[in-house]
C-alpha cells in the first residue's frame, strides 16, 4: 500500500464492519436495522474484495464488488417493498412479531 497503510488494517476494518453487521443482524429487532446490518456485511465483504484486488493488481475483485453492489441494490428494492407490505398488514416493524409460520 503506497500511502503506508498496511494491508492488515483494511482487513481488520473489513472484519470489524462484518462483525458489526452480524451483531446487528442477530441482536436488533427492528426490521430496517436488520436490513441495514445486511448491507453493512455486504459492504464489509466488498471492502476486502477491493483490498485484495488492489494488492494483487487484478481486476477480478472489482468485478465481484460490482456484482455484489448490483445484487444489494436489487435486494434493497425487494426488501424494502416487503418491509412496506409487512408494515401495512401488521403495523409493526418488530421481526419477532412476524412469526406466523410458527405452528
Amino acid at each position: 500500500m503506497s500511502a503506508g497503510v498496511p494491508l492488515s488494517w483494511y482487513l481488520i476494518l473489513s472484519a470489524v464492519l462484518f462483525a458489526l453487521g452480524i451483531a446487528g443482524f442477530l441482536l436488533r429487532r427492528n426490521v430496517i436495522t436488520v436490513f441495514m446490518s445486511i448491507e453493512l456485511m455486504l459492504n464489509a465483504v466488498n471492502l476486502s474484495f477491493i483490498t485484495f484486488s488492489y494488492q494483487l493488481k487484478q481486476v477480478n475483485g472489482h468485478i465481484f464488488s460490482f456484482f455484489v453492489m448490483v445484487v444489494a441494490a436489487a435486494e434493497a428494492a425487494v426488501g424494502l417493498a416487503i418491509i412496506l407490505t409487512v408494515f401495512k398488514n401488521r403495523s409493526t416493524l418488530n421481526i419477532d412479531d412476524v412469526s406466523s409460520m410458527k405452528n
Binding site: 441482536l27 429487532r29 436488520v34 421481526i95 412476524v98 412469526s99 410458527k102 405452528n103
Partner: peptide, 8 residues
C-alpha cells in the same frame, strides 16, 4: 423445533 418462526 428448528422451525421456530423466529427470524433471528
Amino acid at each position: 423445533r428448528l422451525q421456530s418462526g423466529n427470524i433471528r
